[in-house]
């Protein structure tokens, strides 16, 4: 049976892991490679590294960090942040990334999704969506949540699937860092409509939040950052709990 995945996300700035609340108030959470190794040993199913300053400062994700991570850990990992082209992705894959995630660049140029899927395969292309609930529905934000777009999250996710994305990483900006649980309605809306896997992100605070997102939505995976980095809850605790609740985990 396919297991539900628990994915720690490491927001990276200058090779360090950082975490903010609602995309601001950033705190340092330690050396990225050490944290990655710890998570792999603790039973993380995958890792996501997001270079949170890359897009804004027009900086490329740190390839050296990717090389170090690839040498050290024995589980898959995704790298995102500041990816604009086939050449960017090629460099990351060469450095050892298993998948890449794109966000702002895909909104600006949706054909990039098709180009990357054609070059590297859909399984390599994760479309990250930062969504925020507004009066007229869930809208897509870019540039690390700083810039609104006219796109609706559900429409954009469906378009990305059509263009060849292999997975959707869906973050609720309203829930991110708030530790009040995942955004169930938009996660389920996207997961139900699409045939590719959806990773729920933003809002994990308690182990129960993971149970709820897997019971109430068809999300394939759940991503969290802050609660794992600061030792509030361990990945083993989350998995043991999910197992006791009959949710299949590794």
């Amino acid at each position: 049976m396919l297991k539900k995945r628990i994915i720690p996300c490491l927001d990276i700035r200058d090779g360090r892991t950082v975490k903010g609340v609602n995309f601001v108030n950033i705190r340092d959470a330690g050396d990225a490679v050490e944290l990655a190794k710890r998570y792999a040993l603790e039973g993380a199913d995958e890792l996501v590294f997001l270079d949170i300053t890359a897009t804004v400062e027009n900086r490329k994700t740190l390839l050296t960090l990717v090389e170090k991570v690839a040498a050290e850990i024995n589980i898959p990992f995704t790298v995102g942040g500041g990816i604009n082209s086939v050449a960017d992705v090629s460099a990351l894959i060469q450095a050892g990334a298993d998948k890449i995630s794109i966000n702002s660049a895909a909104v600006k140029n949706p054909a990039l999704i098709r180009e990357l899927a054609g070059e590297f395969g859909s399984q390599c292309v994760v479309l990250a969506i930062d969504a925020r609930l507004e009066s007229d529905g869930w809208k897509v934000y870019v540039h690390g949540g700083r810039t609104p777009t006219p796109l609706y999250a559900l429409d954009w996710a469906a378009e990305a699937e059509r263009l060849g994305a292999g997975e959707i990483l869906l973050t609720s900006m309203n829930h991110d860092g708030a530790k009040t649980g995942f955004a169930l309605d938009i996660t389920q809306a996207v997961a139900q409509q699409l045939s590719i896997p959806v990773i729920a992100s933003g809002g994990a605070g308690r182990k129960e939040d993971f149970k709820i997102v897997f019971e109430k939505t068809e999300a394939s995976a759940a991503l969290a950052a802050g609660i794992f980095h600061f030792g509030e809850i361990s990945i083993q605790e989350v998995k043991q709990y999910l197992r006791s609740q009959n949710i299949p985990v590794r």
Binding site: L2, K3, S122, Q123, G166, E167, E218, S220
Partner: peptide, 13 residues
Amino acid sequence: PPGEKVPHIGWNN
């Protein structure tokens, strides 16, 4: 074929 999410991504026995 259709039925579950494709790609088959993740841990399976």
